[in-house]
């Protein structure tokens, strides 16, 4: 308890948003909390989350595993309900789907070809055939999958399967894009390649993106703004604005000294957080033993 209070005192001033920009707000999350029942005991996964995300912003959420970031995304995507609080996603035009999600791990259908997977969203909402053909063709081209349009997922590597997942989300032309640690299962080289490709595709449309990761490098490489979360319960610890211009060259960016500084700053905050939560866990375990 002592630790949490101290943490609160430390964190809250930094966590309140000081925004000078008067951009259009796309997503706002208001005092959102989520509790789960685990064997009759209530466990708080998310505690009083407040966020505003501007239109066209590439917004990153970084936090240790188990901090409830996936739960937050699933709530915003309508796959789960919050216990209290609310959120809103502003839609200027109702013709588009509100959001599309790139899921963590393998989520493309093994029983559909690459093409049918990428066309899934458009097919589900009965888009005209010509539109499906143009859009899906475009994004398969962008993700380098044109030659594999008729292949089945089991014939593809992990990196290519995740490209299909990205093509599926972009083809659906959603208002907001949610990405839940989409590259966490990939090796370093594939990850870097996909970062470059994702930024290239994103630059075309500049959609609002909410991207979850546990990798600080990924957050700084891709994001405009980073939210750092604490774990158990998941709270907002701090917001960090990423000062780098667009469009970005991933490799060039990563060798800049400023890049290292931003990564270091975030690591400092996260490290403190990881240590605190480890302390709490230790104390709890010790109390149990006694």
């Amino acid at each position: 308890m002592m630790a949490t209070n101290a943490e609160r005192g430390l964190v809250l001033p930094g966590a309140t948003e000081s925004r000078e920009r008067d951009n259009e707000v796309k997503i706002s999350v208001d005092h959102l909390s989520k509790q789960f029942d685990v064997k009759g005991r209530s466990v708080t996964a998310l505690d009083d989350i407040n966020i505003t995300i501007d239109k066209g912003q590439f917004f990153m959420i970084v936090g240790p595993s188990g901090c409830g970031k996936t739960t937050l995304l699933r709530i915003l995507a309508g796959l789960e309900k919050p216990s209290s609080g609310s959120f809103s996603i502003k839609e200027p035009d109702g013709s588009r789907p509100e959001n599309s999600m790139v899921f963590q791990g393998d989520s493309i259908f093994p029983w559909m070809t690459v093409w049918d997977n990428a066309a899934y969203g458009l097919t589900m909402r009965n888009a005209p055939k010509s539109e499906i053909k143009d859009t899906v063709g475009h994004y398969l081209d962008k993700t380098g999958l044109t030659a594999f349009a008729d292949a089945y997922p089991h014939q593809l590597s992990g990196g290519m399967r995740q490209r299909v997942s990205i093509a599926r989300a972009f083809s659906n032309d959603p208002d907001v894009l949610f990405m839940d640690e989409p590259f966490s299962a990939l090796d370093e080289q594939n990850k870097t390649l996909l970062h470059e490709e994702l930024l290239k595709i994103w630059d075309e449309t500049r959609k609002t993106v909410l991207f979850i990761t546990h990798s600080v490098d990924e957050a700084v490489t891709l994001g405009d703004r980073i939210m750092i979360m604490t774990s158990q319960p998941g709270r907002v610890k701090a917001f960090v604005d990423v000062p780098f211009e667009r469009p970005r060259d991933v490799l060039e960016l990563r060798q800049r000294p400023e890049y290292g500084e931003v990564v270091y700053d975030i690591w400092q905050q996260l490290k403190q957080e990881v240590n605190t939560s480890a302390e709490i866990a230790k104390e709890r375990a010790a109390a149990k033993v006694r």
């Binding site: 309508g78 789907p97 599309s100 899921f103 259908f109 589900m124 909402r125």
Partner: peptide, 25 residues
């Protein structure tokens, strides 16, 4: 369950969930 999440997220109705996820799966 992830395939049902995908179907829901991409706006599949009950019949389409049945046809594109449950049956082939």
């Amino acid at each position: 369950p992830i395939y049902y999440d995908v179907a829901k997220n991409y706006g599949a109705n009950k019949w389409k969930v049945f046809r594109t996820v449950a049956i082939p799966g």
